[in-house]
Design a protein around this nucleic acid. Structure first.
Lengths: 338, 338
DNA sequence: CTGAAAGCGCTTACAG
DNA sequence: CTGAAAGCGCTTACAG
């Protein structure tokens, strides 16, 4: 250990670099070590350090889809919360896929201080070796003993159903995400259940990946039939799907919201500035990341998040209905737009 | 080491688990070890292993913007090339920012087998300690001794200028990205230089972040003046900017391409399906990732990528002009659309 | 307050 | 072909 050339033992150096000097190292030695460290440009080797303490200081975030603006906000939240203490690293997988068990094992062999898992499938969780502190994100609909932070998407779906029914819609279509994450099932089922209560008919369904163009195409293909069925509103599983519908509606000269009401989930930035603005269920993405980061921090500090009841581990973040120009009563026709 | 209970030494186990048995371990012992390994569910500890060999098997990809569809393709390319051999991990930074020197030092202390750096600024590279194998991606316009893989964005810009001039445009506007990555400067300068050669006037410029809504807003604000100046085409630094222009043009009932031609850079998926389709310079993102992955692999294998000439380290991927419906001659008016 | 020593879990010459 | 041993760079009881 080069820095031992400060004239002290490696033990002392270690104490100083790790900030455990309180009542254990003299001020003079601290100064000496600090000087030597900066002179030599020394930097603690993460590998040796991690091996000695049994775990590294990295936190690995595992997610099926790194590249979408919604997830970017989640990451921001996590980073803001744990970024100073831990090194946050993203696992990279094929777009839309969770890592294979083999990859996870590799990840785990790095002895991360903790694991953050976003939108896992039930199978993924089942195959996950229970190793070390872990917090789940956005896992609505999946059973797990691990602490989790979720959105209350069902409540949002209910508000959406209330809103549309209140506007007088009686026949709606649902454009779902086909990525197979449980949260989408929860959204859809909650909406359909509540629509039924209001006597609102979910007359048709379609699904695509989370992609504007794919959604536009699916809507274009389905619309003739939906129109025949008397559909006056399209509820979309994500804002991205709604953008596709909005786009296609514009091309087809379908007045929104006069002829067709459109809604989404997420409240991505563009939903505010699109024309018309998109009525959507806001899911607080940044807050999700922050909350998950905080939970992990508590876990790492040795706190027991549990509590006796089963829900003690799970934090649920409220969702919120944001009403904008894309919804109005059915048949309000041209001129009502905006 | 638990697996030593296979009845052999730890050295033998290590030889087997790392696959270096060739002529060094008897078939019987290999079998014994394999059995013990699977019985115990043993998995080589990455920390100990990495420390012993001096470096880990992770490759860290550093990039300013993880969450955009273009970068997703780059990642895909990298993963496809090195994913089997190394553990690819993404560094997480504030959106649009490169990591700070302190973060990079932390990253480096994990002793990654290699580093991949996407779209770095000159300052970032200057501050980067020259540690270990590294390949730069998309670094057009930045000087560096490190091997790099770039797009020939200047050639694309030239083709674009040729195309617009050929269609008869004489006055155009340039909507740039303000993210400050050098590649955007290169695109713009190459375009402007070549426009001038054709006698085409770049009469106005504006810039926004890479965001549809921001671009739409900027265009909406600038258009009155641009129109007064006689602008008949808007050249955008990225496809995303062009989407904003396309959107705003539709709202303002500006016929594209009849009244206004619009172009982009990237060729994102949506550019093919938008209406009209977007004329753009295709930058082969996946191939960029693959090429960079391959370069790094060669570097890690100890190959010298150099060569005597300065360009020996740098691979340049060709760009390609994709002409779609968003460009036509000026003043072709309504009815010419598509 | 300080240093010598053991140990984290592996790999790799080395001697047999 | 095999095992005992040294060593990777740190941290942490432990004895002083």
């Amino acid at each position: 250990m080069v820095a031992a050339r400060a004239g002290v033992s490696t033990a002392t150096v270690s104490l100083v670099t790790s900030g455990k000097t309180a009542g254990r190292v003299s001020a003079g030695n601290i100064a000496k070590v600090d000087r030597a460290v900066s002179e030599l440009g020394y930097i603690v080797d993460g590998l040796g350090s991690s091996l000695a303490r049994g775990r590294s200081n990295i936190v690995i975030l595992v997610a099926p889809d790194v590249s979408n603006p919604f997830f970017a906000k989640v990451i921001d939240g996590v980073r803001g919360e744990i970024g100073d203490t831990f090194q946050l690293l993203l696992s990279v997988t094929e777009a839309g896929r969770m890592p294979t068990p083999a990859v996870v094992r590799n990840l785990l062999s790095l002895r991360p201080a903790g694991l953050l898992v976003d939108a896992p499938s039930a199978e993924f969780l089942a195959a996950l070796p229970a190793a070390g502190p872990m917090v789940l994100l956005d896992t609505a609909g999946v059973e797990s003993a691990a602490p989790a932070v979720n959105f209350d998407v069902a409540a949002g779906a209910v508000m959406l159903a209330d809103h549309l029914a209140g506007l007088g819609h009686t026949t709606v279509a649902y454009l779902d995400s086909t990525t197979g994450t449980e949260t989408f099932r929860v959204r859809r089922e909650a909406f359909c259940r509540h629509a039924r209560i209001h006597g609102m008919d979910v007359a048709a369904q379609a699904g695509t990946t989370i992609d504007v163009a794919a959604a536009a195409q699916a809507f274009a293909g389905a619309w003739p039939e939906w129109e025949r069925k008397g559909v006056t509103a399209v509820v979309c599983g994500t804002d991205t799907h709604a953008y596709g519908v909005l786009q296609e509606a514009r091309i087809a000269r379908l007045e929104v919201p006069g002829r067709l009401a459109v809604t989404g989930f997420d409240d991505l930035p563009y939903s505010e500035t699109s024309s018309p603005g998109l009525t959507t269920v806001r899911l607080p993405a940044t807050e999700l990341g922050r909350a998950a980061g905080r939970q992990l921090l508590r876990l790492l500090a040795g706190e027991d998040l549990g509590g006796a009841d089963a829900t003690g581990h799970t934090l649920t973040l409220g969702s919120e209905l944001v009403v904008r120009g894309s919804t109005a009563g059915p048949g309000t026709g041209p001129g009502q737009r905006r």
